[in-house]
Amino acid sequence: MNRYIAGLDRIIVLVIGVALLAAGGYIIAWDAGVKLIRTWVSRLDRHRLLGIPEEDWWHWVLTGTFVVCVVVGLGLLSLNLQRRRTRAVELQHNESGTDVSVDLGPVASGVASELGQLPGVRNTKSRATVDRGLPTLSIVVTADPGIDVVDFTARAERIAASVRRNLDGSDIAVQVLLHLDRVDAVQ
């Protein structure tokens, strides 16, 4: 998720929360018999207020509100569920001082193939995404249930440290998720 989308989500939640707090406060004040609230309500034209749903335009207002809410809701949902693909990472070569552009997709594939060579690993899947604004190499490893998890973790951490060291000068996260096959699936 992108920082801007997260900020937009928080603003929308804040506005809805403040509106619900105001409505709740109004209802509590009405129930408590606060004179100011009762005076405001007594000034309303009840006949006109209760006649609004019978107006010709009321149906169109409700339909428009429904359509706008569905479109905005689906738009926000798609923005929140969309995985961001990484752009090429710019590195500076130490010896020559030139800029080098590195595509992280093949780097993720290389890390996955290296993890695939470890004992007990059956399958690997890789992708390069942006997670909370940080380019992330995400590798999902499926392994035998009897794998030595401590040894696998140590080797995976060494591989991740090597990748970060080789991509020096850029903030990159390496995420390795280990999924173990079911014991009865092995037999």
Rank of each mutant, 00 (worst) to 15 (best):
A154G: 03
S170M: 06
T153V: 05
S138D: 13
E157F: 05
T39F: 05
V141W: 00
Q117W: 00
I147K: 01
V34S: 02
D9R: 02
A173W: 05
V72H: 03
G169L: 03
R158G: 03
A29I: 08
E157K: 11
L134E: 05
V107S: 00
P53I: 04
D168R: 12
R132L: 08
D184P: 01
A108D: 03
V176L: 03
I11F: 13
I11P: 03
S138I: 03
S101V: 07
D181C: 10
S101W: 08
S113A: 11
G24F: 09
S109R: 10
D171H: 08
W30S: 14
R38E: 15
G33L: 01
I159L: 15
V61K: 05
R83M: 09
V72C: 10
D103G: 05
V174T: 05
Q82P: 02
A160Q: 07
G116Y: 00
D99V: 08
Q82L: 12
I5H: 09
E114Y: 01
L49S: 01
R122T: 02
L49N: 01
V140T: 14
Q82Y: 10
R46V: 10
L178V: 13
T142K: 08
V176D: 03
A112P: 09
Q175C: 04
G51F: 00
R85I: 04
E55W: 04
E54L: 12
I16D: 06
L74T: 12
A160Y: 05
E95G: 11
D171W: 06
A160F: 08
D181M: 12
S109L: 09
R164Q: 15
N80F: 06
T124F: 00
G51T: 00
I139V: 15
R38D: 14
G110T: 07
E95M: 08
Q117D: 14
D168C: 04
A29N: 12
V100L: 15
F66I: 11
A6Q: 13
V111A: 15
D171Q: 13
K125A: 14
S170I: 06
Q92K: 14
